[in-house]
Nucleic acid binder design. Structure first.
Length: 881
RNA sequence: GCGCGCGUAGCUCAGUUGGUUAGAGCGUCUGGUUUACACCCAGAAGGUCCCUGGUUCGAAUCCAGGCGCGCGCACCA
C-alpha cells in the first residue's frame, strides 16, 4: 500500500511558486554559487549581461534575455566550467536625460533653470532608484549573476576606461574634431548617430518652384534661401547650354546669383532634371559642396529656427512657420509652379523623443572608421573577424545585415550636447597667450595647466560622449580594463553575447569596432540574437497601445519558471515571438505537473531511496526502457544546449517528462516499482530542467533531501550501463498494445469500470508480454488477459494488430460489423498505398545506391511490417464476414 | 530602389545538413476519478506544409517565378 512519506507534509497539490522563489534565490545568492570558481583545467564560460538602461524597469525583452542567458550560465556552471555572468546597468545618456527632464518639467523646471550640477545630481538619484528596481527584477527572474562584480557604465573605473579609450583613439589619430553635417534633434538639443534615427512615413506637400530657367522640387522650401547652385546631369541635353553659366534669378528675398554645375548625381528622369543644393542641411548636398568647395550657409539653427540667412522677414521663425510664409511670398511673386498635395516621404525622427531631425553642420567629435592604423581601418578589422569566423552570429542570416551595415558605415559622431554622460576628456586653454593654445588638450587625468602656455584657465569640452561609446567597451571595461586584471585574463573574450537583434548595430557592431582595436581581440565568440516579444496579434508591445505585459505581473500570477518557459520554448533565434497569458498558463501547468510527478515519487519513496544505487541485476523491462530513454534525453539535451537550440531542448525534456515518464513509466510503476530507477530518472530530469526552470527544480531537489544545491550539482552524463535498445523496442510495443485496446474501448464507449477479456498472440513477443501482463491489464483496464505465442484467428472478437502482435477484444455482442468492416477497409487502403510507395522506393536502383544505409534499413523494415499488417488486415476482414 | 525574413491544424508556433504515413500547446468534441496532478487522465476530429514549375530515388525543407504579409537599409529633387 502507499506509504506516506514525511516529505509530503510540505507538498500541497498545487505548486505555489510565490511561496518558494524568494527564499530559493536568497539561498543561491548567499551560497556564493554565482561567483565563479577558478579551475585551470576547465574552459571558462562568461557572459557580459547587456546592461539595461537605468531608466525605470525591465520589460519582456529583458526577461527573455535573462532567461536565455541564465540557461547557458547554469548549464556551464553545472558542468563545472568556471562561469561568470557580469551584471550591470547603462547610464543611457539621452534616454535618461529625457526622462529626468520630463520629471522636472512637471515641477516647472528645465535643466537650464536647474543648472548642470544640480541637474546631474537629480539624474543620479533617479538612476539609483532605477538600479534598485532592476536588481530586484533580475532576482525575481532568477538570474544567477555574480552580484559582487556588478558594474555601471558611470562607475569610476569604467569612466577611466572610457577616458583611456578616447585617449588611445585620439593619439592614434582615429578621433578627430571637425565641422561636419550631423543629425540634430532640436528637442534634445543634441546630435544623433545615423542609426539613432527612426523613420515615420508622412504625407506632406511637395512644392515645384520656378528657379530661373528651371523648375525645382522640394518638400522643404524653408532651407532654400541661399540655394545658389543648380545641378544638372552632364548628359542632359536640355541644359547643355547652361553648363558653368551664372545668372541672376528672382528668389525669396529678391534676386540671387545662381550657377549651373553638371554632375551625375542629378537624375534626368526626376522632375525637371535640375536641382538646387542646400549643403548645410542635406547629407548628399554637403558632400557635393565639399567636392566642389561651395559655400556652406547655415539656414536653420540648433533650435529649429531660421537664421539670419533668411533675412529680417524670416529670422527667428520656426521651420513650419517659415515654410508657409515662404510659399506665400513665392506665390505672390508667381514662382510657384504647382504643388503636389499628397507627397509621401520618410521623415527622420529622433529615436528617443520622436522629434523630426534636422541635418545641419556643426563642430563635433568623430571616430574615423576608414583611416588605416597598423595596416587596417576599424571597419576592416570589424568585418574581418566575422568573415573569418572568429565571431559567429546566430542566426547566421544576420551576417549579411552586419556586413552591409559595416561596409556603408560613415565616420561615427560621438559627441552629444547633453549633460548626462561621460564628459569628453578634452580641455581648451582659455588663457590664449600663444597660438599653440588653440589646440585641444586631450588627457587621461584632468589637467591642471595648459601644456603650451602653462596657464591655468582650462575649460573642459561641455559635450558628453555617445552612450554607445561606453557600452561598446562593456565586455572588458567590466573586467577591470585598462588594468591587466585576473578577470580579464580569465574571462575575455567573453563566450556569448546574447541580445535582441534590434541593437545589432547600436551596440554589437560598435563593441566589435572598439574592442578589436583597443584590445586587438574579439569581445565575444558567439552572438546570439533573440527576437522581439510581441502581443498575440503580432503587434509590438507599447505603452500607447496598452498591450504591454509586465513580466512582474506574470511572475506574480504564474511564477517565474512558467514565465521563463513561455519566453524560451516555441521560439527560435532571430524570430519574433508572441506572448499571451494562455501560453504562460500552459507552462504553469507543466511546472505543476513536475511538482505532482515529484509528489508521487515522494509519496512512494523514503528519502534514503533517492541515494540508493540502481541494482542492475533486478531491472524490469520498463526500468531498462526508461533508463535507455533517459540516456538519450541527456545526450540530446547537452548537445542541444551547446548548439544554442534551447527551445528544442526544453520541449524535448517537457515531452519526455510528461508523455513518457509520467504518462507511462509512473503509471507502470504503480504495478511493479523500482524505487532506485524512479528516483534516478526524476533526479536526472530535475537537473536537465534546472537551467530552464531553476526554482521548482531546486525546491524539489531540496525536498528529496539533497544536501548540495542543484545549481552547483553535476550536469547529468550519459551512463553506458543504461543502454537497453531492445527493451526500448519491446516496451514501445507494449505501449502500443495498451493504446490499441484503449482506442477500441473508447470507440465502443466502454466505461473504465467495464472490464473486458483480451487475448494476445505475441508472435515472438509472448514472453515479453507475459512479463508485463499485470501492467497491460491495469493500464488497458483488462479483466482477463490471455497471452499466447500464436493461435487461430478468433471469431466474434474485435481484432487489431500491433506490429506482429494480434490483439483480440472479446466484445462480440458490442461489435458493429459493418462499422468494423469499414474501418478495416479504410486501413487496408491506407496500408496498401503506403506499401506501393515503399515498393517503388525499395526497388529503385538509384535509391538503393544513393540513400543512406540507415534509411534503407528503416524503409525495408517498414515494408516488411506493412506487408504483414496488410496480410493481417485481409485475414481479419475475412474473419469478420 | 536595394537587401532580408515569413506564409505548416481554428489560434500561437516547432520542424538540425533533403529521408518513417508532418508535430506540440491552446481551442473543439467524446468519455472519465485510477497510489501524484481537473493546472489532471483516456480517446477523437482537424493539414493541398501559400500557388506554379524545376532539381532529386525522395521536397514542408533546395532552386526559379508568382501571390500575400512583415522588417532593415537607402532615397527623401
Amino acid at each position: 500500500m502507499c506509504q506516506i512519506g514525511k516529505i509530503l507534509v510540505d507538498m500541497e497539490k498545487i505548486y505555489k511558486a510565490k511561496q518558494f522563489e524568494g527564499k530559493i534565490y536568497q539561498k543561491w545568492e548567499s551560497s556564493g554559487g554565482f561567483i565563479p570558481k577558478f579551475d585551470s583545467k576547465k574552459k571558462s564560460f562568461s557572459i557580459a549581461l547587456p546592461p539595461p538602461n537605468a531608466t525605470g524597469q525591465l520589460h519582456l525583452g529583458h526577461a527573455t534575455m535573462l532567461a536565455i542567458e541564465d540557461i547557458m550560465v547554469r548549464y556551464h556552471r553545472m558542468k563545472g566550467d568556471p562561469t561568470l555572468w557580469v551584471p550591470g546597468t547603462d547610464h543611457a545618456a539621452i534616454a535618461t536625460q529625457n526622462r529626468v527632464e520630463k520629471l522636472i518639467g512637471e515641477e516647472g523646471q528645465t535643466r537650464h533653470t536647474l543648472g548642470r550640477v544640480k541637474f546631474i545630481k537629480r539624474v543620479r538619484k533617479y538612476v539609483a532608484d532605477s538600479q534598485g528596481t532592476i536588481r530586484n527584477q533580475m532576482r525575481k527572474m532568477g538570474a544567477s549573476v555574480d552580484w559582487t562584480r556588478e558594474r555601471y557604465t558611470m562607475d569610476d573605473q569604467l569612466s577611466t576606461a572610457v577616458r583611456y579609450a578616447f585617449f588611445r583613439f585620439y593619439q592614434d589619430g582615429l578621433i578627430y574634431r571637425g565641422h561636419r553635417i550631423v543629425n540634430w534633434c532640436t528637442r534634445c538639443q543634441s546630435t544623433l548617430a545615423d542609426d539613432e534615427l527612426e523613420y515615420r512615413e508622412e504625407k506632406t506637400k511637395f512644392y515645384y518652384l520656378k528657379y530661373g530657367p528651371v523648375v525645382i522640387g522640394t518638400a522643404r522650401p524653408e532651407t532654400k534661401f541661399l540655394d545658389k547652385i543648380i545641378i544638372v546631369h552632364p548628359k542632359d541635353r536640355r541644359y547643355k547650354k547652361w553648363h558653368g553659366k551664372k545668372m541672376m534669378v528672382p528668389w525669396i528675398n529678391g534676386e540671387i546669383e545662381a550657377t549651373f554645375i553638371s554632375d551625375e548625381v542629378a537624375d534626368m528622369q526626376m522632375g525637371s532634371g535640375a536641382m538646387t543644393i542646400t549643403p548645410a542641411h542635406s547629407f548628399v548636398d554637403f558632400e557635393l559642396a565639399q567636392k566642389y568647395g561651395f559655400e556652406i550657409h547655415q539656414i536653420i539653427n540648433e533650435s529649429g529656427e531660421i537664421t539670419e540667412a533668411g533675412g529680417s522677414d524670416f529670422k527667428g521663425l520656426l521651420v513650419k512657420e517659415a515654410r508657409e510664409k515662404i510659399i506665400q511670398e513665392l506665390t505672390r511673386k508667381g514662382l510657384v509652379d504647382h504643388i503636389d498635395e499628397n507627397y509621401i516621404h520618410n521623415l527622420s525622427v529622433c529615436y528617443r523623443c520622436g522629434t523630426p531631425v534636422e541635418p545641419l553642420v556643426s563642430e563635433q567629435w568623430f571616430i574615423n572608421v576608414n583611416k588605416k592604423v597598423r595596416g587596417k581601418s576599424l571597419k576592416q578589422r570589424s568585418i574581418e573577424v566575422v568573415k573569418n569566423g572568429e565571431i559567429k552570429i546566430l542566426p547566421d542570416l544576420f551576417n549579411k545585415t552586419y556586413f552591409h551595415w559595416m561596409e556603408n558605415l560613415r565616420d561615427w559622431c560621438i559627441s552629444r550636447q547633453i549633460w548626462w554622460g561621460h564628459q569628453i576628456p578634452v580641455w581648451y586653454c582659455v588663457t590664449k597667450k600663444k597660438r599653440m593654445c588653440a589646440k585641444p588638450i586631450v588627457a587621461l587625468e584632468t589637467p591642471k595647466h595648459c601644456p603650451y602656455c602653462l596657464g591655468n584657465k582650462l575649460q573642459q569640452d561641455p559635450d558628453t560622449l555617445d552612450t554607445w561609446f561606453s557600452s561598446g567597451l562593456w565586455t572588458f571595461s567590466t573586467l577591470g580594463w585598462p588594468q591587466r586584471t585576473k578577470d580579464l585574463a580569465n574571462f575575455h573574450p567573453t563566450s556569448v553575447l546574447e541580445t535582441g537583434y534590434d541593437i545589432l548595430f547600436f551596440w554589437v557592431a560598435r563593441m566589435i569596432l572598439l574592442t578589436t582595436y583597443l584590445l586587438d581581440e574579439i569581445p565575444f565568440k558567439t552572438v546570439y540574437l533573440h527576437g522581439l516579444v510581441r502581443d498575440k496579434q503580432g503587434l509590438k508591445m507599447s505603452k500607447s497601445l496598452g498591450n504591454g505585459i509586465d513580466p512582474l505581473d506574470m511572475i506574480d500570477k504564474y511564477g517565474t519558471d512558467a514565465v521563463r518557459l513561455s519566453l524560451v520554448l516555441g521560439s527560435s533565434p532571430g524570430n519574433d515571438m508572441r506572448l499571451y497569458e494562455e501560453k504562460i498558463a500552459g507552462y504553469r501547468n507543466f511546472v505543476n505537473k513536475i511538482w505532482n510527478g515529484a509528489r508521487f515519487v515522494l509519496l512512494n519513496l523514503d528519502k534514503d531511496d533517492f541515494r540508493k544505487k540502481i541494482d542492475y541485476k533486478s531491472l524490469a523491462k520498463i526500468d531498462q526502457w526508461i533508463l535507455h530513454r533517459t540516456n538519450e534525453v541527456v545526450k540530446q539535451a547537452s548537445k542541444g544546449i551547446e548548439e544554442y537550440r534551447f527551445s528544442e531542448v526544453g520541449l524535448m525534456i517537457y515531452d519526455f517528462f510528461w508523455s513518457e515518464y509520467c504518462d507511462w513509466y509512473v503509471e507502470m510503476s504503480k504495478i511493479t516499482q523500482n524505487k532506485a530507477v524512479l528516483a534516478y530518472v526524476l533526479k536526472t530530469v530535475l537537473a536537465l530542467l534546472h537551467p530552464f526552470i531553476p526554482f521548482i527544480s531546486e525546491k524539489i531537489w531540496e525536498l528529496i533531501g539533497e544536501k548540495e544545491l542543484l545549481m552547483v550539482s553535476n550536469w547529468p552524463s550519459v551512463n553506458p550501463k543504461n543502454n537497453f535498445p531492445f527493451s526500448k523496442r519491446e516496451i514501445k510495443q507494449i505501449i502500443e498494445v495498451v493504446s490499441v485496446i484503449r482506442q477500441s474501448r473508447a470507440e465502443y464507449h466502454l466505461s473504465p469500470a467495464e472490464k473486458i477479456k483480451v487475448t494476445l498472440y505475441g508472435h515472438g513477443l509472448a514472453s515479453t508480454l507475459n512479463l508485463n501482463l499485470a501492467i497491460i491489464k491495469q493500464l488497458a483496464r483488462v479483466d482477463e488477459l490471455v497471452i499466447k505465442e500464436k493461435g487461430e484467428k478468433l471469431k466474434g472478437c474485435l481484432g487489431q494488430f500491433v506490429g506482429n502482435i494480434e490483439v483480440y477484444l472479446h466484445i462480440a455482442d458490442l461489435i458493429d460489423i459493418s462499422k468494423e468492416c469499414e474501418r478495416l477497409q479504410k486501413e487496408l487502403e491506407n496500408v496498401s498505398q503506403y506499401l506501393d510507395r515503399l515498393k517503388k522506393k525499395v526497388t529503385n536502383k538509384q535509391y538503393l545506391r544513393n540513400a543512406p544505409k540507415l534509411i534503407i534499413e528503416q524503409d525495408k523494415h517498414n515494408f516488411d511490417e506493412s506487408l504483414s499488417r496488410q496480410k493481417n488486415l485481409v485475414a481479419q476482414l475475412k474473419n469478420l464476414m
